[in-house]
Design a protein around this nucleic acid. Structure first.
Lengths: 219, 219
DNA sequence: TAGATTGTTAATCGATTAACAATC
DNA sequence: TAGATTGTTAATCGATTAACAATC
């Protein structure tokens, strides 16, 4: 059996998307005191194919053990390390509306290496308040603070109309990655990466499936 | 030029996911008074390939016009109809926490044929209150109300630990489609469809991209 | 050892992209 | 008409799945 060992560079995007699911399961197994788990067992639990599980996990550089499977603690470390979730990334959030508030209150981000350190808004009614223990600051303070605190990640939870201007501000402030919850395609200078989170695509899939389920026979 | 006309049955999932983006752009164009738009212009605006735009739109049954492109109003109707967003779907939401509150407050759902009619919770502190104009009812009232109001869609915004029980309750109440925001894989009986909305996969993609951007040269 | 599980190499499947005839 | 754009058919690309040798 020749082993890979090498952590993969350009892992397939669908694989990257599935890694958090593996990580979550592994943490559950670790909490239950489990030392090893086979790809077959993982696949059964997550309704995937065992071969896909092995292919996916291979990108992290983890090495399975013949006959017993993958060591749970090492696998957790491997996934965390691959995703960069072993070190905490501090982030600024812009838009302290209901979505922004929900994101600030989501404690699960701690398990994903993400720490929202402060929120920004232009609404004077919101500025100065604390939301889930985090301060809401005036947006114009973002550039200076981002630079001083070496913040690399920004989260946009503003209305669509404000998002592009916020992205530009973030880019100018040295932010390198933007997690965008506003339904707009952002234009940002070259080195900056953007991940668009779009609820409507998930709803579209569900809507089509529901329509097909409610109107059978026409398939 | 032989035309399709037929609305496609088993459209590719990536296509379905992109349809809301086309719809949003078309609505903007309609608001600007635009009558026709070519696949080339759409592609440029959305950073896609023109051929992909044509392939995607074809699933809705829309017919383009040689030399001028696609009729904007008809395209809007075609996409809405394909997604079932031309008729409003009423939904029940369970879990009136910060995420549930954010979802209840999102006015954009009206443009996606979705209407959250009520929320449910087990927290006595939340029950009886109104959130964004919607009542928060005790969870045990869901089955009876869902049946009486013919609710087909349920949204789960509870903590992970409660989600499976809520899904079972929804299934028993005759709900056919579940939009699940809890980080758990739900087990539901056969005809019910589930769409899992998982923020962590988007964050994973962004994290990997950021890591690659911050550590150049190793590519 | 026999049996179970890994990881590799090859085959399949599905989506994207390319080429191009049809057409207004 | 000439030029632009559609929609079809074919080629390419990438991800998933299958087959199977390696190995403990």
């Amino acid at each position: 059996m020749v082993t890979t060992l090498e952590r993969q560079r350009g892992a397939p995007l669908p694989t990257v998307r599935r890694l958090p699911t593996y990580l979550r399961l592994m943490r559950q197994l670790r909490a239950a005191g489990r030392e090893y788990v086979s790809s077959i067992q993982i696949a059964e639990e997550l309704k995937l194919e065992a071969i896909q599980v092995r292919k996916d996990l291979a990108v992290t550089g983890i090495e399975g053990k013949t006959k017993v499977g993958f060591p749970v603690p090492a696998l957790i470390e491997a996934i965390e390390s691959f995703l960069g979730w072993d070190n905490t990334t501090d982030a600024f959030l812009v838009g302290a509306g209901s979505l922004g508030t929900a994101l600030m209150g989501y404690e699960g981000f701690a398990h994903h290496g993400l720490n929202i350190v402060a929120a920004f808004d232009v609404d004077r009614a919101k500025i100065g308040r604390r939301v889930h223990g985090k301060e809401v600051l005036p947006l114009h303070k973002l550039p200076d603070l981002a630079a001083r605190m070496h913040i690399h990640m920004g989260i946009i939870a503003t209305p669509a109309g404000a998002a592009q201007a916020v992205a530009a501000l973030m880019a100018a402030a040295g932010i390198r990655a933007i997690w965008n919850f506003a339904p707009v395609r952002l234009e940002v200078p070259a080195p900056i990466v953007v991940q668009n989170e779009d609820l409507s695509s998930g709803l579209a899939v569900l809507s089509v499936q529901l329509a097909e389920a409610l109107a059978p026979g026409r398939a």
